[in-house]
């Protein structure tokens, strides 16, 4: 048989699904739009909750890819056409391939923080995103635009998440714990820096997340203030003045920080949206793709032979993404078994 599966997207889900599929005996065509596989992990200095280097996980995922995986990078798939139980795929630059099944692992993109205008991203010098802070950790240099070390940093949770005004009603799941992780890392780089997290709810849902939160309080005296940032402004010294309500005290609070980190949430990637539209796939009000059953067949689409894995169906952390990818591989194997039995 040796069926051929096209995996669209070489991030965590794509890599894990590809190696799982080859171990199940499939041939895999892995198509990555960038020059390199790795998706968001390759830009992520350390992972929560144990602050393990992102590259370590990425290396492990990449090393599992066998020779049965044919990798095409720098190819953005623009069209997937179901033709007689098979699929024809083509990219923007004219590249084409065929496959017996397609797995979408097209992932997410980070919320564009400029949309929260009132937070001043792109306007005030020292407002950065969580992704930019992560890059700063990679270089080991945490500094303000002036080159000075910040003495006080604020983290804003839920930027672009749980915010109907920007069109995202959902929770991005990973930002709370990322904020706690990054807050701790800040204290490790700059022990004298005061760190504040402005949160709506602390969603420490995963294993060891709550412990990380406790460590942040106990060991690093990171202060958590329940209240969503309403607006930030720069004062005449360049300090960023934040206005939040300390909702637990029921009082508005004004605080100046040297640096503001916006915990940007997840949105469906452009390619996810485009392919979804092109294939006529159902997507939810959150714009992520919808599988036939959220619980029982989370990887199966309405189109026979087309499958989902990873964050194209909603925000996930890495462990969940990898599990989802393996689950998708099994779903694909099951699909062919059933078809085989029928015929």
């Amino acid at each position: 048989m040796n069926r051929k599966i096209a995996v669209i997207g070489g991030g965590a889900a794509g890599l894990e699904a590809s190696s799982a599929l080859t171990s199940l005996g499939f041939r895999v065509v892995l198509v990555e739009k960038e020059d390199e596989t790795g998706g968001h992990i390759k830009n992520w200095h350390a992972l929560f909750p144990n602050r393990r280097p992102g590259v370590e996980v990425l290396d492990a995922l990449r090393s599992k890819l066998g020779s049965d995986v044919e990798l095409f990078s720098g190819k953005t798939v623009t069209e997937i056409k179901p033709v007689n139980d098979r699929f024809e795929l083509s990219s923007a630059d004219g590249w084409k391939t065929e496959a017996d099944a397609v797995l979408l692992t097209t992932g997410f993109s980070l919320f564009n923080a400029r949309k929260k205008e009132e937070y001043g991203y792109g306007i005030y010098d020292n407002v950065i995103t969580s992704a930019e802070l992560e890059s700063a950790f990679s270089t080991g240099k945490i500094a303000m635009k002036s080159g000075e070390q910040p003495k006080r940093i604020g983290f804003v949770h839920c930027v672009g998440s749980r915010d109907e005004k920007v069109g995202n009603i959902y929770c991005s799941k990973v930002c709370c714990v990322t904020a706690v992780k990054q807050a701790i890392e800040i204290k490790q780089y700059l022990p004298d820096c005061e760190v504040f997290c402005f949160y709506m709810d602390m969603r420490m849902f995963g294993r060891h997340y709550e412990e990380l939160y406790k460590e942040a309080q106990e060991k690093y005296y990171i202060q958590f203030i329940r209240g969503r940032l309403s607006e930030s402004t720069e004062d005449h010294t360049g300090k960023i003045i934040l206005k939040v309500e300390d909702t637990l005290l029921g009082k508005p609070l004004k605080i100046g920080v040297d640096m503001l980190v916006l915990m940007v949430g997840m949105e469906p990637a452009e390619i996810t949206k485009n392919l979804g539209t092109q294939l006529g796939l159902v997507s939810d009000s959150d714009r992520f793709l919808v599988s036939t059953d959220q619980h029982i067949s989370a990887n199966i689409s309405e189109i026979p032979g087309l499958f989902f894995a990873g964050t194209c169906t909603g925000p996930k952390n890495i462990a969940d993404t990898l599990a989802d990818a393996r689950s998708a591989a099994l779903a694909i194997a099951g699909y062919f078994d059933n078809n085989h039995n029928k015929s």
């Binding site: 205008e117 009132e118 306007i123 607006e231 402004t233 720069e234 004062d235 005449h236 003045i241």
Partner: peptide, 27 residues
Amino acid sequence: GGAEYPYVLTGMIEAWGGEVIDYPERR
């Protein structure tokens, strides 16, 4: 210019030679 950084008066001030002050309680 929108609600957060309205431009209507800023545009006039800039056109007429002035410099706009962006102070914390401007909103």
